[in-house]
Amino acid sequence: MKQKFKVALAQISCQRGDKKANIQKIEAYTENARQQNADLVIFPELSLTGYVVRDELYELAEPVPGPSTAAIEKIAKQHGVYIVFGMPELSEKAQATLYNTAVLVGPKGFVGKYRKMHLPTHSVFEEKRYFRPGYQTGVFDTELGKIGLIICYDIFFPEVSRLTRLEGAQLIVCISASPAVRRVFFEILTAARAIENTAFLAYVNLVGIENGLQFWGGSRLIGPNGRALSIAKYDEEDLVIGEVDYSDIKPVEAFVPTLRDLRPELFDKIKENAEKL
């Protein structure tokens, strides 16, 4: 397992509803990232289709693994790289039951998937209208260590990142499609999730305008002390490289030992009270 490697934050805008065009873009960005020696290339939430596709989701969703993941696996194999991207997933057992899914593929093909647990359905978001929430965390063993996947609004719920960390992830990948007014929340939460878990956190946001929503970009790799190691441009497509060095975790974990001080009994209390809220 590599202790030290480069991560590429591939902050793209999407051609809505055009999977072929988006796969081509994913390939071009992957090639570019690979030339800069990245071992992991991360694309935004629903980057296969664009975020605001609404009813078209029923036509665009595919099983995972499926034809589109196969296309991205091919790119990963060809370039010897891990890729995370987002897509609408169609349940294999149903015809119109969908998930908002993050997919991880690598040099040897399909690695795993994570189905978004927290589906925003307020303000401009209508995810529960289309998606069923996931029930499993997504933590996967790779040559880059254990990678935990979360999606956008999940970051407002510390439990999800916490769980991936407790399952061994030292790198949490958050793919996102966050429109402009929410920027301030994400800038704080990305750092908070990294600090409280003493983990690396790679946040990759969409850019472009979809249905009047302006996605703000600002993708970033955060170190375990909450410091941003690299930040992509706001509002524009960008590809930035950051370095993960797992040995940076130890001093922070000893300095602010949040994992040592974790109190499991509080989780029972949280459960009890959340049910009564």
Binding site: R16, V52, V53, R54, D55, E56, E126, R129, I209, E210, N211, G212
Partner: peptide
């Protein structure tokens, strides 16, 4: 009917 203009159809704008 199942899907109604104004209630159900949600088609994205540019």
């Amino acid at each position: 009917q199942y899907r109604t203009v104004g209630f159900d159809f949600r088609i994205p704008l540019p």
